[in-house]
Design a protein around this nucleic acid. Structure first.
Lengths: 167, 167
DNA sequence: TTATCGTGGATAATTTTTGTCTGCAATGGG
DNA sequence: CCCATTGCAGACAAAAATTATCCACGATAA
């Protein structure tokens, strides 16, 4: 079991975008620089967040990304599912049917108990992720993060955010 | 997020081994045949289960695998960790430190809040897995599984299990 | 002695992940 | 109108993980 590195990048980017003012945007290149990531690849992940309606994108110069809704209504689950896909981690291959004994398909109408148990655990995982809002992440960072790191982040956002003309 | 196919195989094998009588064993080749898996590859997973002290192996003709302890004391978590490894799915790459602004290491002594939140969700996942015992899987199968499938499984076990001489 | 079995390592095929590059459409500013 | 900047899509390539095969080896029961 392994999560792609894009998840970490996506959450950090979303947290950063949560502190841009109003409807201003921040270019993907700036976000990449902010975390030392390769811009071309990060754009793929930002794109998935856009497709999932977690971010909005504005083209053109002075364009970039911003949150599509308030950070209070974005959960870690939203982000993880957008980047990693919605399929469960455990995919039942129905190997119980692959044996040498061929039974009628009607013998397998009930779902595999192993699959049921694994999916139940995954529901617990997702429920825990859904409990954490992006605003919680930001608030914790503001409250408990190191002041130097906090100041640097604010300065970076201040320097790269771009106000939009019309709302 | 994705679990390897070995997890499904390992759980099915463990469940099968749970119904071999006493200290009898079952060869890995029989388990592979039972689920239509490649024998050479399945052996790797069975080997990991042995290394994790979930299975015991007996060499020689009449050898094979058996549970190392009663199915009541084997959880799905035991099996998943043995096959997939014990590292968490989310690995914090500390990308918060990779930006252009270089801060002193003392600014990052507190763990990343994102990492904390992700690991909390993973604890929920593992807790749910730890709640399901292998005996539960077997019991559910016996109680709710299709009688034809059940009979076929029992016959297969009966045919391939091998009694051991000394306990 | 022999055939069967698990173990471990080497190796390769396949798939996934990660990363790069290019051309394109949108848009704001001169 | 022209140009620079930005997001978007797709082709492509590199790297890593997963899946799979094979063989030599030690153990062991018949």
């Amino acid at each position: 079991m392994k999560l792609g590195e894009g998840v970490e990048a996506a959450i950090h980017c979303a947290a950063t975008l949560a502190s841009v003012a109003g409807n201003s945007t921040m270019p993907g290149a700036a976000l990449a620089e902010s975390f030392g990531l390769s811009p071309s690849y990060l754009l793929k992940h930002l794109n998935m967040l856009s497709a999932a309606l977690i971010l909005e994108s504005v083209p053109g110069p002075a364009g970039g990304y911003r949150l599509a809704r308030p950070a209070e209504r974005i959960t870690l689950l939203d982000i993880v599912l957008a980047v990693e896909g919605r399929e469960p981690a455990f995919r039942c291959g129905e190997i119980r049917q692959r044996g040498p004994v061929k039974l009628d398909a009607s013998a397998y109408v009930k779902p595999c108990g192993i699959n049921t148990a694994m999916l139940k655990a995954e529901r617990a995982y997702r429920a825990a992720l859904a409990e954490t809002k992006l605003s919680d992440i930001v608030a914790t960072y503001a409250a408990e993060g190191d002041p130097r790191s906090l100041a640097a982040s604010c300065a970076f956002v201040e320097r790269h955010q771009r106000p939009q003309k019309s709302s």
